[in-house]
Amino acid sequence: MDPLYTNRLIIRGFRETDADDLFAYLHRPGASCFLSMKLDDLQAARAEAIKRVNAEDIFAIEHRQSGRLIGEVFGHFELPDSFSIAWQINTEFCRQGLAFEAARAVIDHLFEVRGVRRIYAYVESDNLPSQRLCSRLGMRQEGVFREFISFETDEAGIPIYVDSLQFAILKKEWIGLPH
């Protein structure tokens, strides 16, 4: 993929040299839904960075000013023309509008270059920043899935289920939004 440029970011493919920065945000994921991606050490981060080098649906977010990898937008394509999207940002870079800037660039790319018709996201009911981001991106809430998934267990090992909200936007809706 050719890099995408925004005012403050470069959206690009992963590089093997991203391991340190990848570890910085995945050793303690900011949202419970990313606990399965947790990296325990730098060796695991190196292996993960190498694995991501050829991944088509994982977009690395590079902070232009610092040159650091600060997060990712990722998901998967579903036939015939939908894309499930998610994002995560190093907590050091949160609350600066960078996730919005990155997600907007990737959504533009998915609609205009990849031919996607519909993009959707699952967001846990307690993840208010991602819910706000979905709304800011023009996505509408389509539904609530009660006790949809479990990312953690309680002290007795019993799964703790959380509600998930589904947000989505169609290409024809995206085109009508100011960018």
Rank of each mutant, 00 (worst) to 15 (best):
V73N: 02
F148S: 12
I158S: 12
E152I: 09
E173N: 02
G115Q: 07
S66I: 02
F23Q: 07
V144M: 10
F93M: 06
E152T: 15
I85P: 00
L133K: 06
D57Q: 13
E112D: 15
A44V: 04
E78N: 09
M139D: 00
D81W: 14
L98P: 03
Q141I: 02
D126G: 14
Y161E: 03
I70E: 03
R118N: 09
L170Y: 10
G67Y: 06
S164N: 12
I175C: 11
V106F: 06
G143D: 04
E112K: 11
R146S: 08
S66V: 00
A105Y: 00
A31W: 10
Q96R: 12
S164I: 04
A45Q: 05
R15L: 14
D2N: 13
N127W: 01
L133I: 07
I175K: 10
F23V: 06
F14W: 09
Y120H: 08
P80F: 15
A45N: 00
T6S: 00
R52L: 15
R15A: 11
S32F: 11
H179N: 09
I58G: 05
I11N: 00
V123G: 07
S84H: 14
H76N: 14
V106S: 05
R140M: 13
R114W: 04
L110A: 06
R95S: 15
V53K: 14
Y120D: 01
F14Q: 05
I107T: 10
C134F: 07
D108A: 14
F111R: 03
N90K: 03
T17K: 14
D21Q: 07
T153D: 06
H63P: 03
D20R: 12
F23D: 06
L133S: 07
F34N: 09
G176D: 10
V123E: 00
I107L: 10
G67D: 05
E147L: 08
Y122D: 14
K51R: 15
Q88V: 13
H76P: 01
T91F: 08
A47I: 11
F167K: 04
F100L: 10
S82R: 13
M139R: 02
V144C: 13
G143F: 01
S36P: 02
A105W: 00
F145Q: 11
M139A: 04
D108F: 15
P3D: 05
E62W: 04
F167C: 02
Y25G: 02
L42F: 13
G13I: 06
F59D: 04
Y5T: 07
R146N: 09
Q43D: 15
R140G: 08
N90A: 08
K171F: 03
Y5W: 13
F59G: 05
E56M: 12
W87M: 08
L79G: 15
S130Q: 05
L137V: 05
A31F: 11
I160N: 11
L42E: 12
Y122E: 13
L4Q: 01
A121T: 06
D126I: 09
F148Y: 13
I149V: 13
F83I: 03
L165N: 08
E152F: 07
G75E: 08
H76S: 09
G75A: 10
L177T: 01
T17I: 10
G71T: 02
I10N: 00
V162D: 07
F148Q: 11
D21M: 01
A55Q: 12
I61R: 01
D40Y: 15
D57M: 11
E16N: 12
M1K: 11
Q65V: 13
N90M: 06
I58K: 14
T153C: 14
I119R: 01
Y161R: 10
